[in-house]
Design a protein around this nucleic acid. Structure first.
Lengths: 190, 190
DNA sequence: CCACCTTCCGAACGATCGTTAGGTTTCCTA
DNA sequence: TAGGAAACCTAACGATCGTTCGGAAGGTGG
């Protein structure tokens, strides 16, 4: 893929995240590239191609982050690593993450189906951590792991709305992890 | 407001939630009403009016839910009530909640400012519960209440993507509450 | 019965949408 | 140095966008 084409994808990610897919016109993209809108069609076949590309980039980034989580070792540490990885993707690729989380639903046809499958697979991989933690006894044996995973995943999925790059992302992920593992209740009232 | 106008607001909430604000045309709204698109302008001045109205309806619903939370009693119970209230709004007014959470950003000018202020106020009220819980010693005294509130609020803000009406919404809120309060860690490893 | 109000139709408005096509510039390479 | 690919321009396409307007139903209250 040419350098110019890569630039276009970056501009698309930024504008789709900022104004939404339907709120971004091909003219907006052209202006961001400093070019007439017709010229963009030397690089793409349609505006929908750009959405597809950014969405796939998001899929890859989140799956890669999970790939970096070790398959062995204490589940608690792997959950911490998974939360760190997820939030790091959000912080470092905020535009892509925003499209992955919010704009993907404007995909159509097969592409949409394929994306949904990848998204579901990601959630499954995430959920597996909590299930394993319960089965191995590292998490409480009466844990509802589906609900636990839903809580954790919901929290980080919403992060694109408030997480800002440059902050102490890992520390925030660790604080989330600590809250999820140990709760908020006072010692006295346990 | 006339009955017909109310119908239009309902249709707008449904379509904005389903296809997004920019993805919904005035023609779509007219078709949902069984009417020519020009006819809608007997009821509204612009399409943006409908977004504003639905967004305000969402604001009111979530604030009303918080109003129903008692100001006295154990903080832990009030947090449970707040989560129940929030999820109940999502479940019972899914379209409105979706617009409140996702589509509000297409508001423009003063309306947008006013909405953002109301949203911030909601989050502040939510956060206050956790702060009070820490101050009263019901939650751990070393609690980072801002992070705790962020975790809880993030989780329920994302609920519009997976919560479906008719389910056991209160029970789900209680499970979230239990996880947030007591954590997931196994008894053995505490 | 007439006047009014609400609701809708039908047609059109200018603007903007995503996309196409033919021609031009620029630059690398064979 | 000729050829070709990559990148862009200019102009236009038909479609759709949100909105306006004059008129016509239909029912309600004076």
């Amino acid at each position: 893929m040419s350098a110019r084409r890569t630039e276009l994808t970056r501009a698309a990610a930024r504008l789709f995240a900022e104004k939404g897919y339907h709120g971004t016109s091909v003219g907006d993209l052209a202006e961001a590239m400093g070019v007439q809108k017709g010229s963009l069609y030397a690089h793409i076949e349609s505006k929908a191609d750009l959405l597809w590309e950014v969405a796939r980039e998001g899929s890859a980034a989140f799956h890669d982050a999970l790939d970096a989580v070790p398959e062995e070792g204490p589940v608690v540490e792997r959950i911490r690593a998974a939360l760190r990885g997820h939030l790091r993707v959000v912080a470092e690729q905020l535009d892509v993450a925003t499209v992955f989380v919010r704009e993907w639903r404007y995909l159509e046809g097969e592409r949409r189906d394929e994306f949904v499958a990848e998204r579901r697979r990601y959630e499954e991989r995430f959920r597996a951590l909590f299930r394993e933690g319960r089965e191995l006894g590292e998490l409480r044996t009466d844990l509802d792991d589906a609900t636990a995973a839903l809580l954790a995943l919901s929290a980080v999925n919403w992060a694109y709305t408030w997480l800002r790059p440059g902050g102490e992302t890992d520390e925030l992920a660790d604080r989330f992890t600590a809250l999820l593992l140990d709760g908020m209740r006072g010692y006295a009232s346990r």
